[in-house]
């Protein structure tokens, strides 16, 4: 992604914020993202806090401009934290222009943020939380189940990956600036990336569903004194893994048509499990 527009990176030396400033911004963002998350404005406070240091540097000696900027960035914001760091980078580059006195209205800055946070969250949730996290945890669990103690430490690979990707995103957002990022968006490349990320995510969800949803039925029939007919064997011959598949899609369609009430559904699932387990209709295998 960074290979094509090489020029802005060369110009980096002329920019107001150094690599260190950018790293500080990222470190603040990284440590604060979800800490102050509220129903009212979600990640707004973390966003404002992350930028506060760099904004002070941009608006040196311009208290009024700094105040306006802080208030601009304490408004509603919510995206995925890792890929979302790119928005911080671009916002800083826009604030830099604004601080220099170039004509950038508040609407442009806010519009850019709110316009991009949705699509970026789509990529981040898919790649980071929907794909990378379950893969790392699945790997860790399979080690731990065999008694390998490293399995308990493997989950730490996940935050490490977030730091590496997130800082890279923030830096490239700042160096590329709004124009290049928008151009990148408009080429449709971003859609292609979302699609292929979703493909990987879906493929993994399929594989993990099949591996880790463990239900089968212990029901058997005996006709006269012939060998008992095991229901699970018949099901397996029709379609392998048909019960786990039913479980996933029952929940999927429940959420889709009845709304996403997690607490209610979890309690329902436990009740169903207790009843079917008690009467020997289902068992975990």
């Amino acid at each position: 992604m960074t290979s094509k527009p090489a020029d802005p990176i060369k110009e980096a030396e002329k920019r107001a914020l150094s690599n260190k400033d950018l790293f500080k911004t990222f470190a603040r963002w990284y440590s604060a993202v979800e800490v102050s998350n509220s129903y009212e404005r979600l990640q707004a406070l973390s966003f404002c806090f992350a930028l506060s240091g760099s904004l002070r540097k941009l608006y040196k000696g311009d208290d009024e401009g700094y105040r306006e900027a802080l208030k601009r960035h304490i408004q509603f914001y919510n995206s995925e934290g890792t890929f979302g760091s790119m928005i911080h980078g671009v916002t800083l580059s826009m604030e830099e222009e604004k601080a220099k006195g170039n004509e950038i209205t508040e609407e442009v800055v806010t519009g850019f943020k709110t316009g991009l946070m949705g699509p970026i969250a789509g990529i981040g949730d898919t790649l980071i939380w929907g794909t990378l996290k379950p893969i790392i945890l699945a790997l860790a669990c399979s080690l731990a189940l065999n008694g390998v103690f490293v399995g308990g430490l493997i989950p730490f690979l996940f935050p490490m990956a977030i730091v590496l990707i997130g800082f890279g995103m923030l830096k490239s957002g700042y160096l590329l600036g709004k124009e290049s990022v928008m151009k990148l968006m408009q080429t449709g490349l971003i859609n292609n990336i979302i699609t292929s990320a979703s493909i990987l995510g879906l493929f993994m969800m399929g594989a993990l569903s099949s591996t880790y949803i463990k239900i089968s039925t212990p029901i058997q029939f005996s006709v006269m004194d012939s060998d008992p007919i095991v229901l699970q064997d018949i099901l397996d011959q029709i379609l392998a893994g048909v019960l786990p598949l039913c479980a996933v899609f029952s929940i999927y369609f429940y959420f889709k048509y009845k709304g996403q009430n997690y607490n209610k559904l979890i309690i329902m699932l436990i009740v169903i499990s207790l009843v079917t387990g008690f009467f020997g209709i289902l068992s975990s295998s």
């Binding site: 499990s273 207790l274 387990g277």
Partner: peptide, 8 residues
């Protein structure tokens, strides 16, 4: 029943 819940 609880082990079924763990499986589902």
């Amino acid at each position: 029943g609880f082990s079924v819940a763990g499986g589902i």
